[in-house]
Design a protein around this nucleic acid. Sequence first.
DNA 1: TTGCTCCTCACGTCACGTGAGGTGGC
DNA 2: TTGCTCCTCACGTCACGTGAGGTGGC
Lengths: 244, 244
Amino acid sequence: MTEATDRHWRVGELARMTGLTVRALHHYDEIGLLRPQARSFAGYRLYGERDLRRLYRIVALRRLGLPLEEIAAVLDGDEGGLSITVHRHLEAVEAELAQLARLRDRLIAVRDVLLLEGEPSIDQLTTTMEAMAMLERHYTPDQLKRLKARADALGGEGMQAAQDAWAEIYDALRAAMEAGTDPADPSLEPQRARARELIAAFTGGEADIAASLQRAWCTEDPEELSHGLVDRELATYAGRVFAA
Amino acid sequence: MTEATDRHWRVGELARMTGLTVRALHHYDEIGLLRPQARSFAGYRLYGERDLRRLYRIVALRRLGLPLEEIAAVLDGDEGGLSITVHRHLEAVEAELAQLARLRDRLIAVRDVLLLEGEPSIDQLTTTMEAMAMLERHYTPDQLKRLKARADALGGEGMQAAQDAWAEIYDALRAAMEAGTDPADPSLEPQRARARELIAAFTGGEADIAASLQRAWCTEDPEELSHGLVDRELATYAGRVFAA
DNA sequence: TTGCTCCTCACGTCACGTGAGGTGGC
DNA sequence: TTGCTCCTCACGTCACGTGAGGTGGC
């Protein structure tokens, strides 16, 4: 049994065969991921059949987005084996995907604001983004999707109408507060009823969104949350009114 | 009107206010994105109110995933304005998202193969991935989704049954071909009927998938496509039989 | 001899993280 | 005087792309 000095390939041939660049193969050589079997007298890299097979495996694993270091580990049999690596990587990719989807949603929201406002100052953008950050702190992506759907259904004028309604309610409540009215007083029933209505419209009757809303008002500064409409004192008073 | 030498902040304070790191602020200084208004005698960076405002804008734009260079362009009023930048960036993010989704689908497919086969050799993986690459060449992501749904409904045994059925058909056709039977011969009707059935099950009666399948058999090497079941000669003969 | 393929440096990428080693400050 | 904050280098990241400048080969 003589070991035939079998076929070999130069770096350019290998590149053409696999769709990689020559530079990539140099790189794999440098980091020890794929060392050619031999060198020609002139220093040319000469790859053998084993190298070729290894390279096809490398390319396959690269198409899965694995980093070169992990590819080396899988091929050299360190690491917990292929399935574990693929599993872990899949989870990482799904996390990245979720994050990128959130970024896209932010961009869409900003684009929509830009469409509405024409070309606004960057400071309007900053304000918008702070509002969005607050939303993201209190609602899950899924909840935000549902809120967005309801907001779209309502339309711009509908949103404005709700804003105005809240402003009216708080105007009335501030007057009552300054007059020293008991928060439980029956005369405030119209405001209570209207607020219940508006909240129901906002939450869509969904309990988890109602809970998140509640949490937001408990933990966040009311002045920030309402964009200056409601200060801390009024918020406390209103809380008592609505609870009555 | 005296210009008051108003408030200023040191780098650490700014970092705490914005959630950035000191190093990041150093970096923004280095690349000229945010130069502090002044330096103290000892060389400390002293940021003024203008700097602070600019920094908040930078942070807002960073949250949209914009590269620092584009942020600088937007803030300095080069570039076509905010909306154009956001628009373009949104498109890039959506492209990236689509690509990442494809990667995830590949990973899921590989994971499923791994679950079925236990811990297979990497070469099985290579084969699987080549098959997937071939699929991706001929079917759109949407078509692949539909094919996947049908395959899942069929289950592993169902797929095997279909494979076996094709093997039977091609065995019969090979025999016929070697016996010199006319491709239009009525005696081949059972094979014709069975093949029509199998193809209908595969395409689910959807015309676009049928077209893609057709294209695949026209352009791809049949031996590769069928994983060795059908050579070029038999494929030509079978084509005539099915067309009859 | 002319192309063609190959070779080895070596810098650049993007937005910082992470030390090392040293100095001013309410 | 002791911490604390600040300073300036300067290397590392990940997988190569892109020259520069030079040499062997069926």
